[in-house]
């Protein structure tokens, strides 16, 4: 029964990983761009939420709104001002610029918030749970996380395939050179993609703040989880990313069930095994 429980908890944890990954997946899909500071942006959102709620005593609902708005504008501006300038065939500039950003963000967080590990008290969400059987109960927070992940991915899917904006995003992904001939402005379209990705990063950061302890150096591990979920699921497939998150989550909880020290390692090993067996992921699209 402990194994069934591990799997159930792993699936729910996978929701959080899918939230980590969805933004990364979107940015890669639209502009073939991988942001190495992705995890650090998630952690920044978590700190922002923490500071607003515990530092300034702002009502959590307003804090959520503020975090998402702040992330959206920061994402748009970051793309317009900095990242658009390093997009292109040469891989080195985007990798180095975002790696540099990652180091800057981690150390800036360290300077402001110290190295102490922090967590946001989620009140009743922390303790409420639904009992499924003798040994298995589902926490309200993990359940909410999973529902949020499904909701976020469904919303992204809707934007991508059912709206004029999504049409433009897909067209840009196909052939950015001629999109201006359709009246599209690539710099703006890329920034919109980053804006959407950043809102998802904000949601992921808020859940991270409530779910686990985090510190200024927590970003890189989140980047790796996000990346693994994207690759396991298959590039370009948002539902694949959810599946990738779930597989990673289950691998980790089963690993942790064997020995607490194996949690992260088990996730990495399952990822590498899938990379060997199915290099294009489980639900490849591109």
């Amino acid at each position: 029964m402990v194994w069934v429980n591990a799997i159930v908890q792993g699936v729910l944890l996978g929701g959080l990983y899918a939230l980590f990954a969805a933004g990364l997946s979107l940015m890669f899909g639209v502009m073939r761009f991988v942001n190495l500071a992705h995890g650090d942006f998630i952690v920044t959102a978590a700190y922002l939420m923490l500071a607003l709620v515990t530092g300034f005593g702002i009502h959590p609902a307003f804090a959520v709104l503020f975090v998402l708005m702040a992330l959206a504008s920061a994402g748009y501006l970051n793309q317009r001002i900095l990242l658009n300038r390093v997009l292109g065939a040469d891989l080195l500039p985007p990798v180095l610029v975002t790696f540099g950003l990652s180091i800057i963000i981690q150390n800036a967080l360290l300077e402001v918030f110290s190295a102490d590990s922090r967590r946001l008290n989620a009140g009743w969400l922390d303790t409420a749970s639904f009992r499924l059987s003798e040994d298995i109960s589902i926490g309200a927070l993990p359940l909410l996380m999973f529902v949020a992940a499904v909701g976020v991915i469904a919303a992204m899917q809707f934007i991508f395939y059912r709206t004029a904006l999504g049409r433009m995003l897909r067209a840009t992904s196909d052939d950015p050179e001629i999109v201006p001939l359709m009246g599209g402005n690539n710099a703006h379209i890329f920034a919109i993609a980053t804006l959407i990705a950043s809102v998802v990063v904000g949601i992921a950061g808020i859940f991270l703040a409530m779910k686990t302890n985090f510190d200024p150096a927590a970003g890189p591990a989140r980047l790796l989880f996000a990346f693994e979920a994207v690759i396991i699921g298959g590039l370009g497939s948002l539902w694949g990313t959810l599946l990738g998150g779930v597989i990673l989550g289950v691998a980790q909880t089963i690993g942790a069930q064997i020995d607490a020290g194996y949690q992260i390692l088990a996730g990495h090993l399952v990822f590498l095994a899938i990379l060997v067996a199915r290099p294009r992921g489980l639900l490849p699209k591109m």
């Binding site: 004029a164 049409r167 433009m168 897909r170 067209a171 992904s173 196909d174 359709m182 009246g183 599209g184």
Partner: peptide
């Protein structure tokens, strides 16, 4: 655009409004 349908290809031409 290969990932767009025929109609979506046409619609994207109207993006300029």
């Amino acid at each position: 655009f290969p990932s767009l349908t025929v109609e979506e290809n046409l619609l994207i031409g109207a993006s300029g409004g």
